[in-house]
Design a protein around this nucleic acid. Structure first.
Lengths: 193, 193
DNA sequence: TTGCAAAACTAATAGCACTAGTTTATAAAC
DNA sequence: GTTTATAAACTAGTGCTATTAGTTTTGCAA
């Protein structure tokens, strides 16, 4: 048989397309192989089984997401930066639902590459918070609040959990406005007992 | 063979225990049957395959969650009600991670029973918002903001996405405090253009 | 006591992940 | 140009899963 010219990147890229199409949890090695015109066991030359493919896909998506967020935030500060990154985050989740789902799986503690990819996303958010004058402990709390709000929104909207679709943009804008208010208050307010 | 005395409730209850134990996406009809001391095909007398079991599990969890939230909110109003329901929501997700995951799958539009179970949860949240004097359109936006924040937090914490565990309670308290501020502002503020 | 419906079963099919072992193509070394 | 080593593909086979079809058994009601 002629070689298919496969490599890890092509396998993961095909898996990403498929994940966005049919859902992250439904990708199988069999379907990826079929789309690549190759037999299933051939994939084991490039990824470490289904679990390895999922890990690779998670890293791909985290890097893509970090790139999108960084590009959106560059040259902006304060509320502008917040809105730009939040919009980019939501847009990525909606346009690439399978990849986005892959970004949420927590890396294994000892998996340096995976953790590095996750940290790249975090770094953009931290930069936005620095624009609010936040540093030290409040950054930790603020990051968690931001992540929770943005992820919760993205996950629910992606799943079609918001009944009427027409006002969703307005709702999201309000959420971001409220996050902006919260962030401006973080520096001043004392920690709750 | 003596009859196992199975019924839909026992099958779904076993699936719930298993989902909390090994994760919602990892439950199989085979493992449920094994724990019930029965052969796999016997389950088809009580649930409509794996998909049917997942649906039943989602309804069970939604009803449980609605009960927990309702019990937490009863007799309270305003910030007290918000904090009580938010704490109950978080506690349910952490104590029953598999069931909680099942609550998030959106019901099929034509699935009346499933939609009714989901509406019961929504109803508690709406009641809390009434305590803030919210009605009409702002309720829609506020519900979405609340759900996104609470679900995002629960989902991330459940996945172990928050690095250092010791300050998580404080972070959550701040998130709720900020939601309280947002909700009190909802009635006054005009919709963003 | 008899008969029926529900609840369990066995058997069989098809799809999946994964492993072992084999062939083949490519590219480097001679 | 030939040889050789390596990597990339393959076939074959195992064990798990969901699902369906058809069969036996049980318990209750007539």
């Amino acid at each position: 048989m002629a070689r298919a010219g496969l490599n890890r990147g092509r396998v993961v890229a095909q898996a990403a397309v498929l994940a966005d199409d049919i859902g992250l949890e439904r990708i199988t090695l069999a379907s990826v192989a079929k789309h690549l015109g190759v037999r299933l066991p051939s994939l084991y030359n490039h990824v470490e089984g289904l679990e390895g493919l999922r890990r690779e896909l998670s890293m791909l998506a985290l890097r893509e997401l970090a790139g999108q967020l960084g590009a959106a935030a560059v040259g902006k500060a304060g509320k502008d930066a917040l809105r730009a990154t939040a919009d980019a985050y939501r847009a990525y989740a909606l346009r690439f639902p399978g990849r986005y789902a892959a970004t949420v799986t927590a890396p294994a503690p000892a998996d340096d590459d995976h953790n590095e990819a996750a940290a790249a996303v975090l770094q953009v958010v931290v930069s936005v918070l620095h624009g609010y004058g936040l540093a030290g402990d409040p950054v930790i709390h603020a990051v968690r609040e931001l992540r929770a709000s943005m992820h919760g929104w993205a996950d629910l909207e992606k799943r079609g959990a918001f009944g009427m679709p027409h006002d969703v943009d307005v709702s999201y804008q309000r959420l971001i406005d409220h996050l902006h208010v919260s962030l401006t208050q973080y520096a001043d307010e004392p920690a709750p007992q």
